[in-house]
Design a protein around this nucleic acid. Structure first.
Lengths: 231, 231
DNA sequence: TTACTTAGTGTAATAAATACACACTATCTT
DNA sequence: AAGATAGTGTGTATTTATTACACTAAGTAA
Protein backbone atom coordinates (compact mmCIF):
# COMPACT_ATOMS: atom_id res chain seq x y z
CA UNK A 1 0.00 0.00 0.00
CA UNK A 2 1.35 3.39 -0.92
CA UNK A 3 1.95 5.22 2.31
CA UNK A 4 1.94 8.93 1.82
CA UNK A 5 2.42 9.62 5.48
CA UNK A 6 5.73 10.70 6.94
CA UNK A 7 7.82 7.94 8.43
CA UNK A 8 9.50 8.15 11.76
CA UNK A 9 12.09 6.20 13.59
CA UNK A 10 9.58 5.60 16.25
CA UNK A 11 8.40 2.49 17.90
CA UNK A 12 5.31 1.49 19.75
CA UNK A 13 5.31 -0.79 22.64
CA UNK A 14 2.86 -2.18 25.12
CA UNK A 15 3.56 -2.45 28.83
CA UNK A 16 1.37 -4.41 31.17
CA UNK A 17 0.73 -4.09 34.86
CA UNK A 18 -0.52 -7.56 35.64
CA UNK A 19 -2.22 -7.86 38.99
CA UNK A 20 -2.73 -11.01 40.98
CA UNK A 21 -4.06 -11.65 44.47
CA UNK A 22 -2.44 -14.42 46.41
CA UNK A 23 -2.12 -15.26 50.07
CA UNK A 24 -3.79 -12.03 51.03
CA UNK A 25 -1.36 -9.94 49.06
CA UNK A 26 -1.76 -7.91 45.89
CA UNK A 27 1.08 -8.69 43.52
CA UNK A 28 2.23 -7.79 40.05
CA UNK A 29 4.16 -9.82 37.56
CA UNK A 30 7.65 -8.51 36.87
CA UNK A 31 10.28 -9.80 34.51
CA UNK A 32 14.01 -9.63 34.78
CA UNK A 33 15.47 -8.25 31.58
CA UNK A 34 18.26 -10.18 29.91
CA UNK A 35 19.01 -7.57 27.28
CA UNK A 36 20.36 -4.09 27.19
CA UNK A 37 19.24 -1.52 28.01
CA UNK A 38 18.52 -2.14 31.67
CA UNK A 39 19.92 -5.68 31.48
CA UNK A 40 19.32 -7.47 34.79
CA UNK A 41 16.78 -4.89 35.91
CA UNK A 42 13.24 -5.67 36.84
CA UNK A 43 10.64 -4.36 34.47
CA UNK A 44 6.98 -4.56 33.60
CA UNK A 45 6.26 -7.15 30.96
CA UNK A 46 5.92 -5.53 27.60
CA UNK A 47 6.94 -5.76 24.04
CA UNK A 48 6.77 -4.11 20.70
CA UNK A 49 3.55 -3.85 18.74
CA UNK A 50 3.76 -5.65 15.42
CA UNK A 51 2.94 -3.71 12.34
CA UNK A 52 -0.11 -5.72 11.46
CA UNK A 53 -1.76 -6.11 14.83
CA UNK A 54 -3.99 -3.82 16.83
CA UNK A 55 -2.72 -2.59 20.15
CA UNK A 56 -5.36 -4.58 22.01
CA UNK A 57 -4.21 -7.65 20.18
CA UNK A 58 -0.59 -6.91 21.05
CA UNK A 59 -1.51 -6.62 24.70
CA UNK A 60 -3.29 -9.96 24.64
CA UNK A 61 -0.45 -11.58 22.77
CA UNK A 62 2.14 -10.37 25.24
CA UNK A 63 0.11 -11.64 28.12
CA UNK A 64 -0.36 -14.97 26.41
CA UNK A 65 3.32 -15.38 25.64
CA UNK A 66 4.16 -14.60 29.20
CA UNK A 67 1.56 -16.58 31.06
CA UNK A 68 -0.06 -18.96 28.60
CA UNK A 69 -3.43 -17.43 29.46
CA UNK A 70 -6.09 -16.03 27.17
CA UNK A 71 -9.31 -14.19 27.77
CA UNK A 72 -7.89 -12.29 30.68
CA UNK A 73 -9.52 -9.09 31.91
CA UNK A 74 -7.43 -6.22 30.48
CA UNK A 75 -7.93 -2.55 30.14
CA UNK A 76 -5.86 0.16 28.55
CA UNK A 77 -5.11 2.98 30.93
CA UNK A 78 -2.52 5.44 29.65
CA UNK A 79 0.03 6.14 26.97
CA UNK A 80 3.49 7.33 27.89
CA UNK A 81 5.23 9.37 25.27
CA UNK A 82 8.06 11.40 26.69
CA UNK A 83 10.87 11.83 24.21
CA UNK A 84 13.57 10.30 26.34
CA UNK A 85 11.77 7.54 28.09
CA UNK A 86 13.79 4.93 26.21
CA UNK A 87 17.56 5.45 26.00
CA UNK A 88 17.86 4.01 22.52
CA UNK A 89 15.29 5.97 20.61
CA UNK A 90 11.76 7.16 20.50
CA UNK A 91 9.45 4.60 22.03
CA UNK A 92 5.88 5.41 22.87
CA UNK A 93 4.24 2.86 25.09
CA UNK A 94 0.59 2.10 25.62
CA UNK A 95 -0.04 0.62 29.03
CA UNK A 96 -2.62 -1.91 30.09
CA UNK A 97 -3.51 -3.45 33.37
CA UNK A 98 -4.63 -7.02 33.59
CA UNK A 99 -6.11 -9.10 36.35
CA UNK A 100 -5.27 -12.72 36.82
CA UNK A 101 -6.86 -15.31 39.02
CA UNK A 102 -4.04 -16.88 40.98
CA UNK A 103 -5.96 -19.78 42.45
CA UNK A 104 -3.29 -21.51 44.44
CA UNK A 105 0.20 -20.81 43.15
CA UNK A 106 -0.15 -21.28 39.46
CA UNK A 107 2.95 -21.96 37.44
CA UNK A 108 3.53 -19.70 34.54
CA UNK A 109 4.67 -20.74 31.12
CA UNK A 110 8.34 -20.10 30.47
CA UNK A 111 9.08 -16.59 29.42
CA UNK A 112 9.96 -15.29 25.98
CA UNK A 113 13.25 -14.12 24.59
CA UNK A 114 13.85 -10.84 26.32
CA UNK A 115 13.44 -11.90 29.90
CA UNK A 116 15.13 -14.51 32.00
CA UNK A 117 12.34 -14.97 34.46
CA UNK A 118 8.98 -13.70 35.59
CA UNK A 119 8.05 -13.39 39.23
CA UNK A 120 5.04 -12.26 41.24
CA UNK A 121 6.05 -9.49 43.59
CA UNK A 122 3.87 -7.80 46.21
CA UNK A 123 3.05 -4.24 45.26
CA UNK A 124 4.22 -3.08 48.65
CA UNK A 125 7.65 -4.53 48.07
CA UNK A 126 8.64 -3.57 44.56
CA UNK A 127 12.25 -3.17 43.49
CA UNK A 128 13.48 -0.31 41.32
CA UNK A 129 12.14 -0.75 37.81
CA UNK A 130 13.61 -0.14 34.38
CA UNK A 131 12.70 2.83 32.17
CA UNK A 132 9.76 4.83 33.52
CA UNK A 133 8.04 1.69 34.69
CA UNK A 134 7.58 2.91 38.22
CA UNK A 135 5.52 5.76 36.89
CA UNK A 136 3.54 3.37 34.76
CA UNK A 137 2.90 0.99 37.62
CA UNK A 138 1.84 3.75 39.87
CA UNK A 139 -0.64 5.18 37.40
CA UNK A 140 -2.03 1.71 36.81
CA UNK A 141 -2.42 1.09 40.51
CA UNK A 142 -4.21 4.41 40.95
CA UNK A 143 -6.48 3.41 38.14
CA UNK A 144 -7.62 0.13 39.63
CA UNK A 145 -7.95 1.71 43.06
CA UNK A 146 -10.35 4.16 41.56
CA UNK A 147 -12.11 1.65 39.39
CA UNK A 148 -12.71 -0.90 42.10
CA UNK A 149 -14.99 1.55 43.82
CA UNK A 150 -17.48 1.66 41.00
CA UNK A 151 -16.96 -1.46 38.91
CA UNK A 152 -16.90 -5.13 39.86
CA UNK A 153 -13.30 -5.74 38.87
CA UNK A 154 -12.31 -7.31 42.17
CA UNK A 155 -13.90 -10.60 41.14
CA UNK A 156 -11.39 -10.94 38.33
CA UNK A 157 -8.69 -11.46 40.91
CA UNK A 158 -10.47 -13.99 43.09
CA UNK A 159 -11.08 -17.65 42.44
CA UNK A 160 -14.47 -18.34 40.99
CA UNK A 161 -15.71 -19.35 44.42
CA UNK A 162 -14.66 -17.13 47.25
CA UNK A 163 -15.58 -16.15 50.77
CA UNK A 164 -16.75 -12.73 51.83
CA UNK A 165 -13.64 -12.41 53.95
CA UNK A 166 -11.43 -12.96 50.93
CA UNK A 167 -13.39 -10.35 49.03
CA UNK A 168 -13.10 -7.90 51.86
CA UNK A 169 -9.37 -8.50 52.18
CA UNK A 170 -8.93 -7.75 48.53
CA UNK A 171 -10.80 -4.48 48.84
CA UNK A 172 -8.70 -3.66 51.85
CA UNK A 173 -5.36 -4.23 50.18
CA UNK A 174 -6.32 -2.33 47.08
CA UNK A 175 -7.82 0.59 48.96
CA UNK A 176 -5.16 0.35 51.62
CA UNK A 177 -7.61 0.74 54.46
CA UNK A 178 -9.52 -1.39 56.91
CA UNK A 179 -13.21 -1.88 56.27
CA UNK A 180 -15.84 -2.81 58.81
CA UNK A 181 -16.85 -6.44 58.43
CA UNK A 182 -20.55 -6.06 59.12
CA UNK A 183 -20.97 -3.00 56.96
CA UNK A 184 -18.99 -4.53 54.15
CA UNK A 185 -21.13 -7.65 54.11
CA UNK A 186 -24.39 -5.79 54.39
CA UNK A 187 -23.52 -3.54 51.51
CA UNK A 188 -22.04 -6.18 49.28
CA UNK A 189 -24.92 -8.59 49.74
CA UNK A 190 -27.37 -5.77 49.19
CA UNK A 191 -26.17 -5.19 45.67
CA UNK A 192 -27.58 -8.58 44.84
CA UNK A 193 -24.72 -9.47 42.57
CA UNK A 194 -23.39 -12.38 44.62
CA UNK A 195 -24.78 -15.87 44.46
CA UNK A 196 -24.54 -17.78 47.70
CA UNK A 197 -23.41 -21.35 47.08
CA UNK A 198 -24.25 -24.51 49.00
CA UNK A 199 -20.58 -25.06 49.53
CA UNK A 200 -18.09 -24.18 52.17
CA UNK A 201 -14.44 -23.44 52.21
CA UNK A 202 -12.21 -26.50 52.55
CA UNK A 203 -8.92 -27.28 54.18
CA UNK A 204 -8.97 -24.59 56.80
CA UNK A 205 -8.28 -25.38 60.41
CA UNK A 206 -11.18 -23.41 61.74
CA UNK A 207 -14.83 -22.89 60.96
CA UNK A 208 -15.25 -22.92 57.21
CA UNK A 209 -16.88 -19.93 55.56
CA UNK A 210 -19.63 -20.00 52.95
CA UNK A 211 -18.57 -19.66 49.36
CA UNK A 212 -20.01 -17.13 46.93
CA UNK A 213 -19.87 -16.54 43.22
CA UNK A 214 -20.06 -13.27 41.33
CA UNK A 215 -23.35 -13.32 39.46
CA UNK A 216 -22.50 -11.68 36.17
CA UNK A 217 -26.02 -11.96 34.81
CA UNK A 218 -27.58 -10.15 37.72
CA UNK A 219 -24.87 -7.54 37.55
CA UNK A 220 -25.52 -6.88 33.87
CA UNK A 221 -29.19 -6.50 34.59
CA UNK A 222 -28.62 -3.87 37.20
CA UNK A 223 -25.97 -2.60 34.81
CA UNK A 224 -25.25 0.94 35.72
CA UNK A 225 -25.96 0.59 39.36
CA UNK A 226 -22.41 1.47 40.13
CA UNK A 227 -20.73 0.06 43.16
CA UNK A 228 -19.21 2.33 45.75
CA UNK A 229 -16.71 1.35 48.33
CA UNK A 230 -14.15 2.88 50.56
CA UNK A 231 -15.45 6.39 50.59
CA UNK B 1 21.76 8.23 18.05
CA UNK B 2 22.18 4.62 17.01
CA UNK B 3 18.78 3.09 17.20
CA UNK B 4 18.88 -0.64 17.61
CA UNK B 5 15.16 -0.92 17.75
CA UNK B 6 13.12 -2.15 14.82
CA UNK B 7 11.64 0.54 12.62
CA UNK B 8 8.12 0.54 11.41
CA UNK B 9 6.19 2.44 8.85
CA UNK B 10 4.00 3.60 11.59
CA UNK B 11 2.89 7.01 12.60
CA UNK B 12 1.63 8.57 15.76
CA UNK B 13 -0.95 11.20 15.84
CA UNK B 14 -2.90 13.13 18.39
CA UNK B 15 -6.60 13.77 18.14
CA UNK B 16 -8.39 16.23 20.35
CA UNK B 17 -11.97 16.45 21.50
CA UNK B 18 -12.19 20.12 22.40
CA UNK B 19 -15.21 21.01 24.45
CA UNK B 20 -16.77 24.41 24.82
CA UNK B 21 -19.95 25.61 26.49
CA UNK B 22 -21.81 28.38 24.80
CA UNK B 23 -25.39 29.61 24.86
CA UNK B 24 -26.42 26.74 27.03
CA UNK B 25 -25.02 24.16 24.65
CA UNK B 26 -22.06 21.84 24.88
CA UNK B 27 -20.05 22.00 21.69
CA UNK B 28 -16.90 20.57 20.22
CA UNK B 29 -14.51 22.06 17.75
CA UNK B 30 -14.47 20.29 14.39
CA UNK B 31 -12.41 20.98 11.33
CA UNK B 32 -13.22 20.44 7.72
CA UNK B 33 -10.44 18.52 6.05
CA UNK B 34 -8.99 19.92 2.84
CA UNK B 35 -6.77 16.95 2.06
CA UNK B 36 -7.26 13.32 1.21
CA UNK B 37 -8.18 11.02 2.72
CA UNK B 38 -11.60 12.17 3.82
CA UNK B 39 -11.26 15.47 1.97
CA UNK B 40 -14.23 17.73 2.79
CA UNK B 41 -15.23 15.58 5.74
CA UNK B 42 -15.56 16.86 9.25
CA UNK B 43 -12.97 15.57 11.68
CA UNK B 44 -11.57 16.06 15.13
CA UNK B 45 -8.59 18.37 15.18
CA UNK B 46 -5.41 16.40 15.29
CA UNK B 47 -2.03 16.07 13.80
CA UNK B 48 1.09 14.05 13.72
CA UNK B 49 3.46 13.91 16.68
CA UNK B 50 6.90 15.26 15.82
CA UNK B 51 9.82 13.03 16.46
CA UNK B 52 11.34 15.24 19.12
CA UNK B 53 8.31 16.24 21.12
CA UNK B 54 6.41 14.46 23.86
CA UNK B 55 2.82 13.53 23.19
CA UNK B 56 1.59 16.01 25.78
CA UNK B 57 3.56 18.68 24.01
CA UNK B 58 2.11 17.66 20.67
CA UNK B 59 -1.39 17.94 22.08
CA UNK B 60 -0.72 21.42 23.39
CA UNK B 61 0.88 22.46 20.15
CA UNK B 62 -2.03 21.29 18.08
CA UNK B 63 -4.45 23.13 20.29
CA UNK B 64 -2.35 26.26 20.10
CA UNK B 65 -2.07 26.16 16.33
CA UNK B 66 -5.77 25.73 16.05
CA UNK B 67 -7.02 28.21 18.61
CA UNK B 68 -4.13 30.43 19.58
CA UNK B 69 -4.66 29.41 23.19
CA UNK B 70 -2.17 28.03 25.69
CA UNK B 71 -2.50 26.67 29.20
CA UNK B 72 -5.78 24.98 28.40
CA UNK B 73 -7.07 22.16 30.56
CA UNK B 74 -6.26 18.93 28.70
CA UNK B 75 -6.26 15.31 29.60
CA UNK B 76 -5.26 12.22 27.71
CA UNK B 77 -8.01 9.64 27.64
CA UNK B 78 -7.40 6.78 25.25
CA UNK B 79 -5.20 5.47 22.47
CA UNK B 80 -6.73 4.03 19.34
CA UNK B 81 -4.63 1.50 17.55
CA UNK B 82 -6.65 -0.64 15.20
CA UNK B 83 -4.68 -1.66 12.17
CA UNK B 84 -7.00 -0.20 9.58
CA UNK B 85 -8.17 2.92 11.24
CA UNK B 86 -6.33 5.04 8.67
CA UNK B 87 -6.74 4.07 5.02
CA UNK B 88 -3.19 5.03 4.07
CA UNK B 89 -1.16 3.15 6.60
CA UNK B 90 -0.65 2.38 10.22
CA UNK B 91 -1.54 5.34 12.36
CA UNK B 92 -1.94 5.05 16.08
CA UNK B 93 -3.61 8.02 17.67
CA UNK B 94 -3.52 9.23 21.23
CA UNK B 95 -6.62 11.18 22.11
CA UNK B 96 -7.03 14.09 24.46
CA UNK B 97 -9.97 16.09 25.56
CA UNK B 98 -9.63 19.79 26.24
CA UNK B 99 -11.94 22.34 27.78
CA UNK B 100 -12.14 25.88 26.56
CA UNK B 101 -13.83 28.88 28.09
CA UNK B 102 -16.00 30.33 25.36
CA UNK B 103 -16.92 33.57 27.07
CA UNK B 104 -19.02 35.22 24.42
CA UNK B 105 -18.31 34.03 20.92
CA UNK B 106 -14.57 34.05 20.76
CA UNK B 107 -12.91 34.17 17.39
CA UNK B 108 -10.37 31.50 16.71
CA UNK B 109 -7.06 31.97 15.02
CA UNK B 110 -7.01 30.88 11.40
CA UNK B 111 -6.44 27.20 10.97
CA UNK B 112 -3.34 25.38 9.80
CA UNK B 113 -2.61 23.66 6.53
CA UNK B 114 -4.75 20.57 6.62
CA UNK B 115 -8.10 22.12 7.33
CA UNK B 116 -10.12 24.77 5.63
CA UNK B 117 -12.10 25.83 8.65
CA UNK B 118 -12.87 25.10 12.26
CA UNK B 119 -16.35 25.35 13.70
CA UNK B 120 -18.01 24.81 17.06
CA UNK B 121 -20.76 22.24 16.71
CA UNK B 122 -23.20 21.14 19.43
CA UNK B 123 -22.51 17.60 20.56
CA UNK B 124 -26.15 16.74 19.97
CA UNK B 125 -25.92 17.73 16.37
CA UNK B 126 -22.70 16.26 15.04
CA UNK B 127 -22.22 15.31 11.40
CA UNK B 128 -20.56 12.09 10.30
CA UNK B 129 -16.89 12.24 11.10
CA UNK B 130 -13.77 11.06 9.27
CA UNK B 131 -11.78 7.97 10.27
CA UNK B 132 -12.90 6.48 13.59
CA UNK B 133 -13.47 9.92 15.03
CA UNK B 134 -17.01 9.20 16.10
CA UNK B 135 -15.71 6.46 18.30
CA UNK B 136 -13.06 8.77 19.68
CA UNK B 137 -15.54 11.54 20.37
CA UNK B 138 -17.88 9.20 22.07
CA UNK B 139 -15.26 7.76 24.37
CA UNK B 140 -14.10 11.28 25.22
CA UNK B 141 -17.62 12.38 25.99
CA UNK B 142 -18.14 9.35 28.23
CA UNK B 143 -14.94 10.26 29.98
CA UNK B 144 -15.90 13.81 30.86
CA UNK B 145 -19.40 12.69 31.82
CA UNK B 146 -17.84 10.36 34.31
CA UNK B 147 -15.18 12.77 35.45
CA UNK B 148 -17.50 15.69 36.06
CA UNK B 149 -19.14 13.72 38.82
CA UNK B 150 -16.02 13.55 40.93
CA UNK B 151 -13.69 16.32 39.77
CA UNK B 152 -14.27 20.04 39.37
CA UNK B 153 -13.75 20.14 35.62
CA UNK B 154 -16.96 21.97 34.86
CA UNK B 155 -15.39 25.26 35.89
CA UNK B 156 -12.94 25.00 33.01
CA UNK B 157 -15.81 25.51 30.62
CA UNK B 158 -17.47 28.45 32.35
CA UNK B 159 -16.38 32.07 32.40
CA UNK B 160 -14.41 32.99 35.48
CA UNK B 161 -17.52 34.51 37.02
CA UNK B 162 -20.66 32.51 36.61
CA UNK B 163 -24.09 32.06 38.11
CA UNK B 164 -25.32 28.92 39.80
CA UNK B 165 -27.88 28.51 37.06
CA UNK B 166 -25.16 28.46 34.42
CA UNK B 167 -23.27 25.90 36.43
CA UNK B 168 -26.34 23.75 36.81
CA UNK B 169 -27.13 23.98 33.10
CA UNK B 170 -23.67 22.78 32.30
CA UNK B 171 -24.03 19.78 34.58
CA UNK B 172 -27.37 19.09 33.01
CA UNK B 173 -26.16 19.11 29.44
CA UNK B 174 -23.16 16.96 30.22
CA UNK B 175 -25.08 14.46 32.30
CA UNK B 176 -28.06 14.71 29.98
CA UNK B 177 -30.55 14.93 32.80
CA UNK B 178 -32.48 17.52 34.74
CA UNK B 179 -31.27 18.33 38.22
CA UNK B 180 -33.30 19.82 41.02
CA UNK B 181 -32.43 23.47 41.53
CA UNK B 182 -32.67 23.57 45.31
CA UNK B 183 -30.78 20.36 45.82
CA UNK B 184 -28.12 21.35 43.33
CA UNK B 185 -27.47 24.66 45.04
CA UNK B 186 -27.49 23.21 48.51
CA UNK B 187 -24.98 20.56 47.56
CA UNK B 188 -22.74 22.76 45.50
CA UNK B 189 -22.55 25.51 48.10
CA UNK B 190 -21.97 22.92 50.80
CA UNK B 191 -18.72 21.81 49.24
CA UNK B 192 -17.36 25.22 50.10
CA UNK B 193 -15.43 25.53 46.87
CA UNK B 194 -17.34 28.48 45.47
CA UNK B 195 -16.64 32.05 46.37
CA UNK B 196 -19.70 34.29 46.32
CA UNK B 197 -18.88 37.62 44.71
CA UNK B 198 -20.35 41.05 45.40
CA UNK B 199 -21.32 41.25 41.80
CA UNK B 200 -24.36 40.41 39.78
CA UNK B 201 -24.98 39.30 36.29
CA UNK B 202 -25.35 42.13 33.77
CA UNK B 203 -27.33 42.69 30.64
CA UNK B 204 -30.19 40.39 31.42
CA UNK B 205 -33.77 41.56 31.17
CA UNK B 206 -34.85 40.01 34.41
CA UNK B 207 -33.63 39.77 37.94
CA UNK B 208 -29.86 39.44 37.83
CA UNK B 209 -28.28 36.45 39.56
CA UNK B 210 -25.32 36.52 41.90
CA UNK B 211 -21.96 35.68 40.44
CA UNK B 212 -19.61 33.07 41.86
CA UNK B 213 -16.03 32.05 41.30
CA UNK B 214 -14.47 28.61 41.64
CA UNK B 215 -12.17 28.80 44.65
CA UNK B 216 -9.20 26.72 43.61
CA UNK B 217 -7.37 27.20 46.89
CA UNK B 218 -10.21 25.92 49.00
CA UNK B 219 -10.67 23.03 46.63
CA UNK B 220 -7.03 22.04 46.90
CA UNK B 221 -7.29 22.14 50.66
CA UNK B 222 -10.20 19.76 50.74
CA UNK B 223 -8.31 17.94 48.01
CA UNK B 224 -9.67 14.48 47.82
CA UNK B 225 -13.11 15.33 48.96
CA UNK B 226 -14.45 14.14 45.67
CA UNK B 227 -17.51 15.72 44.22
CA UNK B 228 -20.49 13.64 43.29
CA UNK B 229 -23.30 14.67 41.04
CA UNK B 230 -26.01 13.21 38.97
CA UNK B 231 -26.38 9.88 40.66
C1' DT C 1 -13.38 -31.10 76.89
C1' DT C 2 -11.14 -27.29 76.29
C1' DA C 3 -8.75 -23.81 73.84
C1' DC C 4 -8.39 -21.55 69.66
C1' DT C 5 -9.60 -19.19 65.46
C1' DT C 6 -12.49 -17.27 62.31
C1' DA C 7 -17.55 -16.88 60.73
C1' DG C 8 -21.55 -14.64 61.12
C1' DT C 9 -24.91 -11.41 62.80
C1' DG C 10 -28.27 -6.41 64.33
C1' DT C 11 -29.31 -1.98 65.79
C1' DA C 12 -29.08 2.79 66.72
C1' DA C 13 -27.21 7.27 65.27
C1' DT C 14 -25.76 10.22 61.77
C1' DA C 15 -25.30 11.96 57.28
C1' DA C 16 -26.63 12.38 52.58
C1' DA C 17 -29.99 12.33 48.88
C1' DT C 18 -34.40 13.23 47.25
C1' DA C 19 -38.95 15.31 46.42
C1' DC C 20 -41.41 19.20 46.24
C1' DA C 21 -43.73 24.92 45.37
C1' DC C 22 -43.95 29.56 45.95
C1' DA C 23 -42.70 34.40 46.86
C1' DC C 24 -39.26 37.83 45.33
C1' DT C 25 -37.00 41.08 42.21
C1' DA C 26 -35.46 43.37 38.20
C1' DT C 27 -36.75 44.71 33.79
C1' DC C 28 -39.81 45.70 30.07
C1' DT C 29 -44.23 47.21 28.18
C1' DT C 30 -47.94 50.10 27.76
C1' DA D 1 -47.24 53.71 37.58
C1' DA D 2 -49.38 49.34 36.95
C1' DG D 3 -49.00 45.02 35.26
C1' DA D 4 -46.72 41.24 32.70
C1' DT D 5 -42.71 38.53 32.28
C1' DA D 6 -38.82 35.66 33.34
C1' DG D 7 -35.65 33.90 36.11
C1' DT D 8 -33.75 34.06 41.19
C1' DG D 9 -33.62 32.24 45.58
C1' DT D 10 -35.16 29.68 49.45
C1' DG D 11 -36.85 25.29 53.56
C1' DT D 12 -38.63 21.16 55.18
C1' DA D 13 -39.99 16.50 55.57
C1' DT D 14 -38.98 11.80 53.89
C1' DT D 15 -36.18 8.29 52.43
C1' DT D 16 -31.96 6.13 51.84
C1' DA D 17 -27.14 5.24 52.75
C1' DT D 18 -23.27 5.28 55.88
C1' DT D 19 -21.09 4.65 60.05
C1' DA D 20 -19.97 2.80 64.65
C1' DC D 21 -19.84 -0.86 67.46
C1' DA D 22 -19.23 -6.43 70.23
C1' DC D 23 -20.70 -10.73 70.99
C1' DT D 24 -22.12 -15.69 69.99
C1' DA D 25 -21.68 -19.76 66.87
C1' DA D 26 -19.17 -23.23 64.50
C1' DG D 27 -15.56 -25.96 63.36
C1' DT D 28 -10.68 -27.69 64.22
C1' DA D 29 -6.79 -29.11 66.98
C1' DA D 30 -4.74 -30.57 70.98
Amino acid sequence: MGLSLPKFDSVFSIDCVIFGFDEGELKILLIERNEEPFKDWWALPGYIVEQDESIDHAAERILYELTGLRGIYMDQFYTFGDVNRHPQGRVITVSYYAMIRLSGSKDLKPVSNYASKAVWIPVNDLPKLAFDHEKIFSKGFDKIRHKISYQPIAFELLPEKFTLTQLQNLYEVILNKKLDKRNFRKKMLNYGILKELDEKQKGVSYRAAKLYKFDKRKYSKLFQKEITFGK
